[in-house]
Amino acid sequence: MEYALQQLLNALAFGAEYALVALGLAVVFSIMGLVNFAYGEIIAASAYAVLLAVAVGLAAPLAAVGLAIAMGILASVLLERVAFRPVRRAPLTTGLLTAFGVSIVLQNLFQLFISPRPQALPLLNGLNQTLMVGPYAVSSLQLMQLATAIVAGGALVWFLNRTTLGIAMRAAAGDFATVRLQGIRADRVVAAAFALSGLLAGIAAVFVLARRGSVAPDMGFMLVLKAFVACVIGGFGSLAGAALGGMVLGFIEVGLLVLLPAEYGGIKETLTYCIVIALLLLRPEGLMGTRRELGDKEA
């Protein structure tokens, strides 16, 4: 019983992390039609910012959390200005490849200027403690991840439905030109989307740091790839789908972890992707997706 609860929390926490990152991707995709492959490097940039702060002697965990989030927002908005604005009106493929290129550049810059090898960064390990809730031992980090995902999801729903900027973002997802006809600055809506996405990346960076205790150039890439898969499961472009897809992915992974004997641990990833591909056979458009064809971007 305790084991089952443990694994349930485990699945929820994994799912929450994927959902958070998937939401960050979906916010930008639904508004800009940009498949942001560089998102993982935004997460990594947040983590490296903390690394640098520690190197110069700023070693307060709370400040590190703030710094990671600020860096996520900054990096995301900056990338939009520098790399994605020139291809804003280009076809989907062009934006996707641009983001992919940016991702390669950033990963290699981290290698070049910091190190190709992981750097230890135990500052936030304190977030990950074992708590006793009644008779159960649970991880504080997992509880925090779950709580944060719920709060962030709720805040996002509130923002998109209750604020003018949020409504403008929803409108822009369907018809960007007409949003501008309302006198709303396009650049502001876009910047807001990227800032929101960067905020989620910063939060994700905090969790990844607390779990791994180290930073590496490719630390975000694999996570983001999984988040993309979550988006595909849920239906690309749908925010609710991204959250749901993240959760489904978390449950698949933990399910495999439980069912597979320890010596097969190496093929967990492989099996996860196989299950996902099988899911897509059943529902090619994703769980909550409406079919979106290539070239629909302008429509």
Binding site: T164, I167, A168, R170, A171, A173, G174, D175, T178, V179, Q182, G183, I184
Partner: peptide
Amino acid sequence: FAGLTVAENLRLAAAT
């Protein structure tokens, strides 16, 4: 804006 309510459509136009 098809996905927005009538009120939200008007609210956007009044955004500035």
